[in-house]
Design a protein around this nucleic acid. Structure first.
Lengths: 150, 150
DNA sequence: GTTACATCACAATCAAATTGCGTCGATCCT
DNA sequence: AGGATCGACGCAATTTGATTGTGATGTAAC
């Protein structure tokens, strides 16, 4: 398979929303036999178009009651400084996302913590001890009218 | 089941990373028999702790070659203005996430588009035609050293 | 026109999911 | 202290789905 056709796009769209649909049901949805459908899914996984599957969990049940986006500016823009910061962030479980962005700050983080107190501890003991960090601005998430993360 | 115990947390953590693991394998991981494990998973789904499952797809394969975070300030802070904006955003497929945040802007959006030209069209024809919008700041994502979205 | 290749559906086999049921441990009530 | 009740378990049988081999079909290239 060298290119993704319309059937593949239907498969991907369906799996993007219902990752654990049975192959039988998926085959019916996209109009193939189960074996043909399964082979396509397996190929999409093999070539990396489908990177994996994840359960979508209710945050509260995972102990997450507080979410914030944080912009981070570094005091030095060197490659070493950026790599060191990224390593520090990789170790912090509260950091769910770390994006390298254009603009006045180098990074945008998504932080998930139990509550404000836990966020404060993260802010002080994690971000506050990374020597590369020069500026931090926190934006607390009060709600998410749209959230199609995957 | 009234509360989530350590076995449940193990199940959730495993499914959060490998949503399509077989029940057989999951049972081995958490130390239960397959039927006991399956019943717990079914209960976690029933009570809403597991909201669903999604395939994680490579962005390029879905036609996404450009990602940006956008802060949006509204010209009026009324409930009606916010709802109208949120409805406009709900209709836009490029908007993957819309978060209501504290600080100088009301919203933080995550935009996924094919390329810069497509982003420009979104910026002009979608955001640029919502009357509630007073300020827009775009932050282009150049990379994501950490991304555990689900 | 022939050959090669990709993709399909069918069918057989294998593996996993599902569910009924008995057992065990904990808790509560007498 | 003993019995009853309830929740959760593992076992086993049954059902369902996944997997894979294979032949057929269509398309493209030579």
């Amino acid at each position: 398979m060298s290119k993704i056709d319309q059937i593949d796009r239907n498969i991907l769209r369906t799996l993007g929303g219902e990752g654990r649909i049975s192959n039988l049901e998926l085959a019916e949805r996209v109009g193939l036999s189960p074996s043909a459908c399964l082979r396509r899914v397996q190929e999409l996984e093999r070539i990396g178009v489908i990177k994996g599957y994840r359960a979508v969990l209710a945050p509260k049940a995972m102990g997450v009651g507080f979410t914030a986006y944080v912009t981070v500016g570094l005091n030095a823009h060197t490659k070493a400084s950026q790599l060191a910061f990224e390593q520090g962030v990789a170790r912090a479980v509260e950091v769910r996302e770390c994006h390298n962005i254009t603009g006045a700050w180098e990074y945008l983080l998504r932080i998930e913590a139990a509550d404000l107190a836990a966020y404060k501890r993260f802010h002080t003991d994690v971000l506050g001890t990374l020597p590369q960090v020069q500026s931090i601005t926190s934006y607390v998430v009060m709600g998410s009218p749209k959230d199609e993360r995957a």
